[in-house]
Design a binder for these strands. Sequence first.
RNA 1: CGGGGUGUGGCCUAGUGAUUAAGGCGUCCGCUUUGGGAGCGGAAGAUCGCAAGUUUGAAUCUUGUCACCCCGACCA
Length: 412
Amino acid sequence: MRQSKLFTKTIKQAPKDETSFNAKTLIKAGFIDKSSAGIYSFLPLGLRVHNKICDIVREEMNAIGGQEILMPALTPKKAWQKTDRWDSFDVLFKVIGNNKREYALGATHEEIVTPLVQKHIFSYKELPVYIYQIQTKFRDELRAKAGLIRGREFSMKDLYSFHVDKKDLDKFYEITKDAYFKIFNRCGLSEITYLTYSSGGDFSKYSHEFQTLAENGEDTIYICDDCKIAINQEIIDEQKVCPNCKNKDLRKEKSIEVGNIFKLGTRFSNAFDFFYTNKKGQKHDIEMGCYGIGPSRIVGTIVEVYHDNKGIIWPESVAPYQVHLLDLEAKKTSEDIYNKLLKNEVEVFYDDQDDKSAGEKFADADLIGIPYRLVVSKKTLEQNSVEFKKRDKQETKLVKIEKIVEELGGNK
RNA sequence: CGGGGUGUGGCCUAGUGAUUAAGGCGUCCGCUUUGGGAGCGGAAGAUCGCAAGUUUGAAUCUUGUCACCCCGACCA
């Protein structure tokens, strides 16, 4: 991508109505744009990051047998009434269409996926099934805040599992835990993301969250360094002991919830009279689980966690591009290198702007945060080289032009 | 939803009762520049969130309203 063609610009001063670090920085760097409170557009660079996260999520969901679908965002009132959530789910956006038809904008999809699966699944032979989607969710938060961390509209991967009994649900629940860790590791959040015991809400005594350590996080967790798990402040007892190993030496930290997994039990299957027939020909309850991850929230979380005073430092796995090529008055060579990188399928963002000073190009590169920076200038050309620098390191080195592709490959 | 705060060109700010609303960034034109957000000259761009009111006179005061931000509550 040529930077001269990118329709978004970086800006020096973020709008004053953004105070969260993630939104301020992403807006300055041209990744997102605020439309209303808690509602953002994803711009070309931001969308690339978002989509890379979605791809990782999708791969790991498929790997555990998830089948991807796409459910509607406009969901019928009747379904929500059936589960008694039309009036009780306080963040539901309700819309009235022509002929006074009422819908809720999807805040979660148990009400849709349950009757959907019901149309196809009748027998123990067909269970379990794992159905997921990646879709925009709508929740009318009384107070949107923290940029991409708590918005009124956000992306979510929601997986729903259907089982013959609790035992099978428990088994799959553990499998998704592992899949979730793989996802967070691949997004560059390993080591700082903890499985966290939390309240089960309406559905069960406990659920599990995945909490990523972040100074500006809105949650507080207590970490047991022996078990590498955490307990959400909302459920920890007065003694502050680890429920796993009874360790009392817990570390208090701020964090962001990047995922959660729930055992729903029969709450929704029963509400829709969804049963299966067992081996003996008898009607039997279906056990359900649900498992959520918010890709848009992960974008914000990564920015909260990986930055310095100049800008974002994207992990390679989710960076919008792998290489930021800066031309400093050596256009002909820069163009050659750009084309060569494209030919070798290197994801390259090329600053080919003629009317920007060197300083501005460097500042933009730091702000945008692409992992590798290549500078082509008269100075580097004297040695038939380009300057090579990693975003998260101070050192630079010269790399011979013919060795660039190799150098980048060698660092992957 | 309770409490607090803020609305002035695209962005950041000044102006707190008196000519024609000021500056910086950005944008456009010209020339000069190019290793850490360049320089000079010129230009465009604002019914001061909206509505009503007070006043000889309102960006400025009052009331209402909308939007946005912060703290709290809530967060399946």
